[in-house]
Design a protein around this nucleic acid. Structure first.
Lengths: 197, 197
DNA sequence: GACGACCGAGAACGAGCGTTCTCGCTACGG
DNA sequence: CCGTAGCGAGAACGCTCGTTCTCGGTCGTC
């Protein structure tokens, strides 16, 4: 009990801690394989407290996905901000993916996994996943526009990124996948710029 | 009882009928949401018979995925054989996808869905999915080679196809996705041919 | 110092489901 | 005509897991 708790800030911290713990377990083992008991044990809170923070497992899952969405966004933006050239800023998406794929414990896109596990059972989960994918597409469209590209090529870049994630997850040998997708995106972007010029 | 049964051929037919029925239910509702009872009801066989044909649900799932792999292959080849130009034969992959995405009840790639649901629980299922994806990649590499393209561009075509499936499944609005991926593949293939020429 | 509200730990409950068991019928062989 | 093997229908069992309940202790308050 190293938490003073009982302050509103303490509550927020506990909630965040639970979400982070659940995210890790869910991503490692799959959402359906991780029961509330496991979350309780790993997060060190009681079931009662768990259910006072989240009315149901569904709500916890949604909170986890929202956190993950936020972290995804931050990772993308961090890599984007390393580049100044608009073309490079588009391609930074694949640098981010490359780095991610190489991390130990990479198990594919958490949103796609969640959709596969729960998409047909929970409308809330399906909505959050869809929302995230729309966000990602909008993000890429922004970068591509700044590079002078069309929304059509932005969609193609999105398809490459999604395909890279799926393929990296399933084959388990993601070494060349992100760089291959990056090269494809560069070719498509350059062709689009040449065509609309 | 319109089956004379007791002949080996009859057994095969029953088995096939069960696999087909399970495939439909699994694809529509997700594998985890369909119990053996539902398969029994829909296929019109007893549980005993079900378990005499398949030792476990896992075995049934693997059989379903193998059937689906076969049907996928046949669909791809049917579209491929409509074209004679090697470049068009590569792009026929996306004509197949376009047609598939437009079908009522399209719910994404059954293998990716199965992997999301069971990949972390059943090694057999994970293996079959991986195997299918490797097969697909090999198939595309064959087509691309005949068009004079490299394996590198073949991988890029695969990434586009995978990304199209994922995106079409999650957004639920697959109208422009396959044609967009097709155009991207054409651009990449042409660029590769020009580069290696 | 006593009382009451709160909270953690874990038991308990109920539903879903994979798998097996039981029972009764049917059909075939002697 | 009888016995028996096989099979279909569905009950039953055991496990998992989401959710709720119970019990005991603790801490703040009068």
């Amino acid at each position: 009990m190293n938490q003073q708790s009982s302050t509103p800030a303490g509550e927020d911290t506990v909630r965040e801690q639970v979400v982070r713990t659940a995210d890790r377990l869910y991503y490692e083992q799959g959402i359906l394989s991780v029961g509330m008991d496991s979350v309780r044990d790993a997060a060190g809170v009681s079931l009662k407290r768990l259910y006072s923070l989240f009315a149901s497992k569904d709500e916890l899952v949604v909170a986890v996905l929202r956190l993950r969405q936020q972290m995804l966004r931050q990772g993308l933006e961090a890599h984007r901000d390393l580049a100044t050239d608009p073309r490079e800023r588009v391609l930074s998406v694949f640098d981010f993916l490359d780095r991610w794929f190489g991390e130990p414990g990479f198990r594919g896109c958490g949103f796609i996994n969640a959709f596969g596990e729960l998409g047909s059972r929970s409308d809330d989960v399906a909505s959050v996943v869809r929302e995230t994918k729309v966000d990602f597409r909008t993000y890429v469209e922004g970068l591509v526009r700044e590079a002078g590209g069309s929304d059509a090529v932005a969609l193609q870049v999105v398809l490459l990124a999604e395909g890279a994630q799926t393929t990296a997850a399933i084959t388990g040998t993601p070494s060349l996948i992100a760089s291959s997708a990056r090269a494809a995106a560069a070719t498509l972007l350059d062709a689009d710029l040449a065509a609309t010029a």
